[in-house]
Design a protein around this nucleic acid. Sequence first.
DNA 1: CCCATACAACCTAACGTTTGTTAGTATTGT
DNA 2: ACAATACTAACAAACGTTAGGTTGTATGGG
Lengths: 197, 197
Amino acid sequence: MEGTENSPARERVLTVAERLFSERGYATVTLQDIAGQLGMRKASLYNHAPGGKEQLYVEVMERNLARHQHGIEAALTGAEPRTLRAQLRAVSRWLLSQPAINVARMQRIDMPEITPEHATRLMGAAYQALMVPIERAVEAAYRRGDIRFVNGALVAGIFLTNIEAIRDLYQYDAPEIPLEVVVDDAIDILLDGLHRR
Amino acid sequence: MEGTENSPARERVLTVAERLFSERGYATVTLQDIAGQLGMRKASLYNHAPGGKEQLYVEVMERNLARHQHGIEAALTGAEPRTLRAQLRAVSRWLLSQPAINVARMQRIDMPEITPEHATRLMGAAYQALMVPIERAVEAAYRRGDIRFVNGALVAGIFLTNIEAIRDLYQYDAPEIPLEVVVDDAIDILLDGLHRR
DNA sequence: CCCATACAACCTAACGTTTGTTAGTATTGT
DNA sequence: ACAATACTAACAAACGTTAGGTTGTATGGG
């Protein structure tokens, strides 16, 4: 019943908490929300997460970010053909397959609610997991001569927040068009720009 | 002391509430936060906002959005020269001069916390104030032959969330570069794309 | 084979705080 | 004087959290 071991029940708790925290943020999600989705009482959560809410949040977000890092890197290296466009499309598919996460929203909304130590650690992990791999792919595309020189971190931030924004605004924008089509359009705009050629 | 009249003290309350709600969202901001910034007790807020928290949030966000609509439209019509690039730059300057607002975050985080009627009304106003003017400018640029055919709503959503994401991630990305420079880079990427020409 | 033990997983009950909210009272400025 | 504006005090509800009890299931000894 220690925090590090993984029983099946604990795994269910972590999975639900991860999805809710990732999608709706720290303060908005209550322990009742998590317990409710599991069909149990909030007090029972302390069997699986004795550290309480904030520690559960940090642990589960680090898990989320670690999985994202693997998923994104796999998408980047496995994309065929080896172009930035195919890579970004592959990453977008990975992101859409996961609970919504938004690094900018984490920074602005969630971090002020937790310990500064936890906040700096989490944001460091978020940067490393989400931004850095894409940053590297952008810089590699530049060295290949495929794209012009740009701020890699800027492009990574733009790309990531665009995917999540599209997911959020989807029902308003274009409920009839498949989500993947809209995402691919956004990637095309990022690569080719709005201007005529 | 009715909700519609505007005393100077009430104005101060609305201004602070607007900034906090806009930047950090509905659930994260407590009435104590607002009262604290005004140097008063939370109960005193009910002199100026008798409708309570949710009504204050809706009222103040509608105000915020109405001002944004004017500011954005003014930026669009006043931009010189009359190019999409100059227009988007002008709009970005307006956005940076205002409290941070993020329509995608509103949709995902704030709307589930309030009445469905309030939510649909607010999101309608947000769309009308933030998205539609930019959408129109994009379509006008297309009719001028300056840009290729694109989904105007998609471009508007991308542009708006990019500006706010840059603001959020600024301290991580590039604390030494002026914020306006980074924003202009993002606009250039949106217009010209990453690819070489 | 049966019973005792143990442990995991959930429960109820209660706690101290914080939140939004209401009522009544004091203070301030004109 | 009289509004406008702020206060204190208190409320119910919701929050995170702790303590202790109940259940089911598996393990192991006699």
